[in-house]
Design a protein around this nucleic acid. Structure first.
Lengths: 167, 167
DNA sequence: TAAAAGTTTCAGAAATAATTGAAAGTTTGA
DNA sequence: TCAAACTTTCAATTATTTCTGAAACTTTTA
C-alpha cells in the first residue's frame, strides 16, 4: 500500500466509522483529511480533494468548528480562510465526549429522571416503567459522571484509568 | 405526567437517542417498549403499539436478537412467538459494547494498524499520515481494551471503576 | 465607494435509509 | 397430507438526510 492509497483508505474508513456512530460521512471525511494534512487547508482544497460542493464543505466545516475539533487559521497576507484540525487525539476524544454528553446524554437524563419520579399507580405497566426508567437513569448518571471526568481530565487520566483496570 | 404519557415519552426519547447513535428509530422503540413491558409481547402487539408493519417489526426484532438484547419466549400451549428484552441495564450495556466493539471498532483497528505501518517515504504527507494513524491506533487499542474488559466484567466492575475515578 | 474576493445560506435535487405489504416459506396438528 | 397459523423475505414506496449550486451577504482593498 502506497501513501496515496493509505490516505484514501484512511479518509474513507473514518467516514464509514463516523456514520456508524451518527456523524455524517462528509463531516468525518473532512475531519480525516485535516487530521492527516501537515498544513492548513482552504475550502477550495477540501472541495477538490473530496469532490464536494462549496455549500457542503462550508456547512460541515462549521459543524466541525462547533464541535471544537477544527479551527480557522489565518495565514498572514492571505484573504482566504484556512482550516486545521486538533491533532492531539486524546484532546479530540475528550472534546467529542464533552459535546455528545452535553447535546445527547443530558437531555435524556432529564427525561429519565422525570419518568423515574412519576406516580406509577397500581398497574404492572406503571410499576415496571418506573423501575426500568429508574435503573437506566442510575446507570446513565454514572456514565455522565465518567464522561464529565474524562472530558475534564488531563492528558494522562485515561492511561491511568486503563492501568487501574489492567490490575 | 400520567403513566401513559410517561410511557410514550420514554419510547420516543429512546428512539431519538438511539438514532443519534446510529441505531434506527424503530429498533430503539421496540427495544424501549419491551424494556418497560412487564410481560412478553407478540409481533402483533408490537405492531399495534408502535403502528409499524409486520415486516418492519419482524426485521427489527431479528436485529435486536442479533444484538443479544431481546429474546424469544415460548408461551406453553401457544403457537405464536413472544419477545422479551433483557432487563438488567448493565447487561444490556455490556452486550451493546461487546457488539459494537466487534462490528465497528475491530475493523477500524485493522485498517489503522495497516496504515500505521506503511513506508511513509520522504513527503510530509506520508509522514503526517503515518504519525496520525499511529496515534489514533494507539488510543483505539486502549479503548478496545477497556470495552473488552467492560463487556466481560461482572455486575460490579463498572461501579468499582466509577468509585476509583471519584477518588 | 465600488468591485473584487471570499463566505454563508437555503430551496430544490439527489442519495440513502427505513418501511410497507403482499407473496413465499415454514411449522404444526388433525 | 393438507390447510391453518404463523414467520420471513423483498421489490416497490415513502421518509429522511445529505448535498448542490446559485444568490445573497460580508469583508477587503484600490
Amino acid at each position: 500500500m502506497n501513501v496515496e492509497q493509505a490516505k484514501a483508505k484512511f479518509i474513507q474508513s473514518w467516514g464509514t466509522f463516523g456514520s456508524e456512530w451518527g456523524i455524517n460521512r462528509t463531516m468525518a471525511q473532512i475531519h480525516a483529511l485535516l487530521l492527516i494534512s501537515p498544513v492548513a487547508l482552504s475550502t477550495e482544497e477540501i472541495m477538490a480533494e473530496l469532490s464536494v460542493s462549496r455549500g457542503n464543505a462550508n456547512m460541515n466545516l462549521r459543524s466541525l468548528m462547533d464541535w471544537g475539533i477544527v479551527f480557522k487559521e489565518l495565514v498572514p497576507g492571505e484573504r482566504k480562510e484556512y482550516f486545521v484540525a486538533e491533532k492531539d487525539i486524546m484532546k479530540v476524544a475528550r472534546q467529542i465526549s464533552r459535546e455528545r454528553r452535553k447535546r445527547e446524554l443530558e437531555p435524556v437524563l432529564g427525561i429519565l429522571s422525570e419518568i423515574a419520579t412519576i406516580n406509577p399507580g397500581t398497574s404492572k405497566e406503571g410499576i415496571e416503567l418506573k423501575k426500568v426508567a429508574g435503573n437506566i437513569h442510575e446507570v446513565a448518571l454514572r456514565v455522565d459522571d465518567v464522561l464529565d471526568k474524562f472530558s475534564r481530565s488531563d492528558e494522562n487520566w485515561f492511561y491511568k484509568m486503563v492501568l487501574q483496570l489492567m490490575k
